[in-house]
Every structure is written in C-alpha cells, then in structure tokens.
Design a protein around this nucleic acid. Structure first.
Lengths: 153, 153
DNA sequence: ATCTCTGCAAACCGTTTGCAAGGGA
DNA sequence: TCCCTTGCAAACGGTTTGCAGAGAT
C-alpha cells in the first residue's frame, strides 16, 4: 500500500488536474505501492476486498484516466492484460524473456535518447514511461533453438 | 500481395528453419505486402476470401510461429489487436499519437543502442523488430495539454 | 445546481483450447 | 511411416458499453 504522504501527494495531483476526488479513485490509487506493477484485474480484486461495492468498470475507467493524467504508466507485458504502475520520478524499463518470462531491469538512461530523438525529429512528446522489450535471456538462447539459430546464420 | 520472388525467398527461410511448408502457411505469408501491417483478424479475413476452408486457429497459430521464427514482427499498436508485419532487413519503428492516432516513422538507428545495451548488460537478445512508442504529436500537444486538461474521451 | 462519476449487468470480441483427422517430409 | 499441422467448435476472459442515479464541487 502507498503510504499516507505519497497518497496525499498523488491525490493532490489529481485535484490539480481538475479531476474529482472520489473515494473510489483514492482507493484505487492507494492500492499501488511504489514500484509495484498491478494488472487491472489485480487492482479490482484488491479494491473489492476492502470495498466490494466498487464496480469493475469504475476500476477500468479510473486506471485509464489516471494513465492519461500521467499518474500511472500502462505497459503491455506480453500477456493479454494491462499492467499499471505508479509513476514517480524514477523511470525504469524491462527486458522480458519470451522463453521463461524472466524480467530484467533496464535503466532509463538507455531510453532517454529515444525520447529526445522523437522530440527533435518530429516535436513528438513520447510518453515512454515503462517500456517492455521482448527477446531471449542468455539462458533461453540455448534452450530455444529455432529463432536464435536462424539469426546467427 | 507479396510478389513471387519475395514469397519464394520467405518460404525458403521457412523450410531452412526446419518447418513444414504447408499451403496454409504459404497463403498466410502471401497476404503480406512489404511494409504493410496486418492484424491477425485482417489476415484471417483475407485468407478466408481466397480459401475459406482455412481455419481461424490455423491463422493465429501460424502468425505466432512465423513471429517466433523471425519472419514476422508483432507489435502492440495500442488497440487490443495483434499487428504483424513482414520482417525484412529494414527495421523501422513508430511514434503513435494518443491524441489523433497518427503514426510517425522512427529509424532503427535510434533503437540500435538499446539492443546493444541489453546484450552488453545481460546477454539478452532483444527482438526489437517493430517498436511502437506512445505520446502526443506536435499538433495534439496544443489540443490536449495532457495533465492539466479536464476533458473526457 | 451542475455535470462528472459510478453501479449495473450483459455483451463484446479477439484469442485460445483439446482432440482427432489430415498430410508434409 | 512419423509426427507435425490443421480443422472444428465451444469456451475463455479481460474489457467495454449505455444508461440512470449518485455524488463531488
């Protein structure tokens, strides 16, 4: 769970954006501990434990809204679900192994040039908040012959 | 449609990878014109026009297989569908505007350092074949000043 | 008082599954 | 012959929809 100070700050950002501060929204934001990814499904499940009256649609709609406002990041991790994370000042990204599912960390310093290129070239403001890049980790390159072998020839 | 030579070459890569060359697979590959994105749904629809007997599952299974073999790229373009594209030697990527849906082109030279960092740091072989980065194009930045705006959509 | 936000419940729809028959190599 | 691939058809499951009423400001 998000601690009280961090929650208050985030709620402040909500209000500052001209959004209504409803109990549902505060509850949903409160589910996020810093650095933890949650799927929409997981958020709904956790919220339901505390307050069963909160509806599924509200959770989905709120997550999307919070993402658009820049309070959450949304990431496609390769499964069919939507992953959300609290968006602080520390950006990080992931390398996702298609062989074993392992997730490795990739610092934002590698991604920053991309953001800058997009802006320089097109004036495009890229929201690269939490990138997921797919491939094969060092261990699975040996285990899974097909793709790697072809590329090496 | 893919021209005959390009199709033959791609089929050759299929065979070289030790995969069976079935009429369905050739048909599916043939649907891709160079540089064109197709969703799984679209591929199925086009295949069905030519050969209605080909099953939906076959299309989905084949696309996934071709992707794993490195013949196709798969990209999440922000809608809930899977987008595929023929994978030649020319890698390119996209900036997708969340405001108007515009897609801008981003050359692979900006992405290459990422691939190299992943390999150097973790020995991870990143398959960054066709990246989609989200954000706001120059025009939409004015139309919707992101975190301060209180509209809906 | 205004107008956003929420609850409701069914529907959506792209995708996946298990298994037996088919057919490349 | 071997066993990889396909067809079949139902089901899956995360997400979305439209609308009326509740509630934040």
């Amino acid at each position: 769970m998000l601690d009280a100070d961090a929650l208050a700050a985030t709620v402040g950002r909500l209000r500052a954006a001209g959004q209504r501060v409803t109990p549902q929204r505060v509850l949903i934001l409160g589910m996020f501990a810093a650095g933890e990814h949650l799927t929409a499904h997981e958020v709904y499940a956790r919220v339901a434990q505390v307050s069963p009256a909160v509806n599924r649609s509200t959770v989905y709609r709120t997550l999307e809204r919070l993402r658009d406002l820049g309070l959450l990041s949304e990431t496609d991790l390769g499964d069919a679900e939507r992953h959300f994370e609290l968006l602080g000042d520390d950006r990080h990204h992931h390398l996702v192994c298609r062989g074993c599912g392992a997730m490795l960390l990739l610092g934002d310093e590698f991604v920053r040039p991309l953001r800058e290129a997009a802006r320089a070239r097109y004036g495009f403001v890229a929201r690269i908040d939490h990138l997921a890049l797919f491939g094969l980790c060092s261990r699975c390159q040996d285990t899974m012959p097909a793709p790697a072998d072809e590329d090496d020839h």
